[in-house]
Amino acid sequence: MTSTGSNPFDRMPSDTGWHALTDSATKRELLSQDLYFRECWADVTDAFGPDAHDALAPLALLSFKCDGIAGRRAGATLDFLAGNGFTVLATAGIRHNRHSMRELWRYNWHVYTTDRLELMTLMHGAGDSLMLIVRDDRYDGIIPAAVRLADLKGSADPAKRGPEHLRTVLAPPNQIINFVHVADEPADIVRETGIFLDRPGRLRLLEDVVTALKNDGHGGRAAAEERLASLEAACPASDFDLDAAFDRLGNAKLASPAALSTLRTAAAGGTPLTWDELTALVAPQTGGWDFVRVATAVLSADRPGGPDLLPPSSADAWRARA
């Protein structure tokens, strides 16, 4: 057992380690008490040794959301990673439940209405998905891979991103359906792996990462493609086109003409519907991804104000402190 602190039974990063894991003093304070971070950090130090923070610097985490599987964005995402100098090292199957998704986005979802939380529970728990650990082959010793990839992901606001961003390439229909998630910093890789996976799963993933690093990542993309193809085969595809979703719901008689009229009016800028009003018009269990697409257009999504409790870092911030 490797210890990074004075108590071998409660291992935590040293000051040097924290400096390499996050640019945020607030994040350090919160994660030092976070159950998921603490559990996974012990596993990470077992896998990588006392300099685990250095081992994490060239690594990043990307996970596909269920809508990313349904939207068939896997191939475009893998191409984007390769084109920007990231090599897939290892994968792990994941599936959210209502608790894990709230833990993952604990510091972001406080701005959501309770109706949107219902929708997120449906969306993110809809099926199995996949997380990737990738290596930044362009790592410069200053900007951690997680930070560079988070910057490359781009803003949820289309007006704030360019053609170089992953979200532009994936062309999400709105800010709610956005297909993939990326850990913001090395510290978030640790915490999020602790949320996604139980200890046996974490140990398998970390062993796979260590092995892949020794093999220079050979076969990592092929393994990811195989697993993603299996997930897509088990998941109905969706184009996430709003007008087409309305048409399909009507043609399948999953919503009455009167219900569709109400939904179209709300989607066109009318008074938003509540979750209960929406589900009285279309049943989530039968509407599938078309229900999800319509829901993103007719619900009131956000509460007033309230920035992220942990604003994401940036490559500029890391570069400035170097």
Rank of each mutant, 00 (worst) to 15 (best):
residue 250 G to S: 08
residue 298 V to T: 02
residue 291 F to M: 05
residue 284 P to S: 06
residue 241 D to S: 06
residue 234 A to V: 08
residue 213 L to F: 09
residue 280 A to V: 03
residue 212 A to D: 09
residue 239 D to P: 11
residue 204 R to G: 09
residue 250 G to Q: 04
residue 213 L to W: 09
residue 218 H to R: 15
residue 211 T to I: 09
residue 278 L to H: 04
residue 279 T to F: 00
residue 282 V to H: 03
residue 212 A to W: 09
residue 247 D to S: 06
residue 213 L to M: 14
residue 285 Q to I: 05
residue 295 A to P: 05
residue 219 G to H: 14
residue 260 L to A: 05
residue 269 G to A: 10
residue 276 D to R: 09
residue 197 L to Y: 15
residue 235 C to Q: 08
residue 200 P to R: 13
residue 283 A to Y: 03
residue 277 E to W: 01
residue 239 D to C: 06
residue 256 S to Q: 11
residue 253 K to N: 13
residue 240 F to Y: 09
residue 262 T to P: 04
residue 294 V to C: 06
residue 220 G to M: 14
residue 201 G to I: 03
residue 249 L to V: 00
residue 250 G to K: 04
residue 206 L to E: 07
residue 269 G to W: 08
residue 282 V to F: 01
residue 291 F to T: 09
residue 219 G to L: 11
residue 275 W to H: 02
residue 211 T to R: 15
residue 223 A to W: 04
residue 277 E to P: 05
residue 205 L to K: 12
residue 202 R to L: 13
residue 295 A to R: 00
residue 263 L to K: 03
residue 242 L to Y: 05
residue 259 A to T: 02
residue 264 R to K: 15
residue 241 D to C: 04
residue 214 K to M: 11
residue 249 L to Y: 05
residue 279 T to K: 01
residue 289 W to S: 05
residue 295 A to H: 00
residue 293 R to N: 11
residue 248 R to V: 13
